[in-house]
Simulated assay, not measured.
Amino acid sequence: MVSDVELDDCRLVAEEAARLGGRELLRRFGDHGRVDYKSAPTDPVSEADRASEARVVELLRARRPDDGILAEEGSDHVGRSGLRWVLDPLDGTVNYVSGIPFWCVSVACEEQTEDGWRPVVGVVHDPIHDETFHAARGRGAYLGDTRLVRPVRPLDQVTLASGYAYDVAHRGVQSAVVADLAGDVRGVRMLGSTALALSWVAAGRCDVYVEDHTFRWDWAAGLVIATEAGAAVEISGSRVLAAPPELIDELRPRVAALG
C-alpha cells in the first residue's frame, strides 16, 4: 500500500503536471493547430493534445522515473514501482477545438493491487477558470484549499450531467436513458468532459453524472475526487455512474442500457 508520504508526493507531482499541461493548452487555445481523427470523425485529436501530453510525460518521467504511464495519446511507459500515472492531456477536445471553455487536464496515480490497478490520487485542472480539483485516498477532496463535501439533495432537486459517445449510432441509446431520467430531475446538462463533470459532482455543481463509451484516462482522476467528496462512483464496463450514495441504487437499473 502506498505510504502517506508517497501519497503526498504523488499529489504534488500530479498538480504540477496538470498545471504544466494546462499552460500549454491555454497558450494554444484558439490556435490549436492541425486536427486529426481517431476512432471516428467525431473523435478529434489536435496538436495541442499531443503537446500537452509531451510536457506532462516529460515531467512525470523526470520526477517519478520508476512509475508506469498510461496516456490517451500513446505515451505509455512500463514501470517497476507498482505505481502508474493515468493521464488525459486534454479532456474535452471537441469543446477545445470548438472554442468552448470547458476542458481540462486530468492526471491520476494508481497503485497495483491483487485486484488490478486502483486510483489513489487525482488532479483535474481547468486552466480557463484556474481551478484545480485534487484528492488523495483517505485525505478528502479539494478545490484549491477548500474542502469539498457534496450536498444532499432529493432526486427532484438533482442536476444530471451526461454526454454523448463518439459512436453516433449509440447516441440514441444514451438519449433514451437521459430522457427517462429528465422528468425526475431539476435539470440536465451535457458538459463534454468526464473528468470535469466528476469534479463538478464533488463540488456540488451537478449531482449525478452518467456516460458510457469512456476510457480509464477519462475517469481515473475524477473518480478519486468525487469519491473523496462523498459521492458513490461505479464503473461498469465503459459506463460511469456517479451519484449520491442514497440515490445510486435507484439510478443503477435506470442506466443499465449503457455500458
Rank of each mutant, 00 (worst) to 15 (best):
A71F: 01
F133D: 02
G21L: 10
G230T: 09
A256C: 00
D156Q: 11
R186A: 15
L191A: 07
W117I: 09
G222A: 10
V158P: 01
G21F: 09
A161I: 06
D43T: 01
A203M: 07
S3Y: 03
V233N: 09
L59Y: 05
R186E: 15
H125Y: 15
E6S: 05
Y142M: 04
G116S: 08
A232C: 10
A179M: 02
R64Y: 01
A161F: 06
A202P: 11
T42N: 11
G22A: 12
W103V: 08
G144V: 05
E211Q: 14
V168Y: 12
S81Y: 05
H134I: 04
V152D: 10
A202H: 10
W200L: 15
W200N: 06
D218A: 05
V94Q: 13
V178H: 00
V224A: 12
R139K: 15
A221K: 09
D130V: 05
P127T: 11
H129V: 10
H213Q: 14
T42K: 03
R139P: 00
R254G: 05
V94E: 11
R205T: 12
R205L: 14
R80Y: 01
P119K: 07
E53P: 01
D76Y: 02
V97M: 06
A17T: 08
L20R: 13
L87I: 15
L26C: 07
L90C: 04
A229V: 11
I235S: 01
P151H: 07
A195R: 09
G204I: 08
R171N: 13
S199L: 08
T132D: 07
T146P: 00
E114W: 06
V208P: 04
D207S: 00
G68F: 00
Y164G: 03
C104L: 05
V152T: 11
L160H: 03
A161D: 08
G172W: 06
T194N: 10
R118I: 10
L87V: 15
E234V: 14
A51F: 01
V5P: 00
S193M: 11
T93K: 01
D126E: 15
S81E: 05
E47R: 01
D66H: 12
C10I: 03
R254K: 13
W200Q: 14
D212K: 02
V120L: 14
F29T: 01
T194C: 14
A71N: 09
I69A: 06
Y142S: 06
L20Y: 03
D43L: 05
G172T: 06
N95D: 12
A229F: 09
R189Y: 02
Y142T: 02
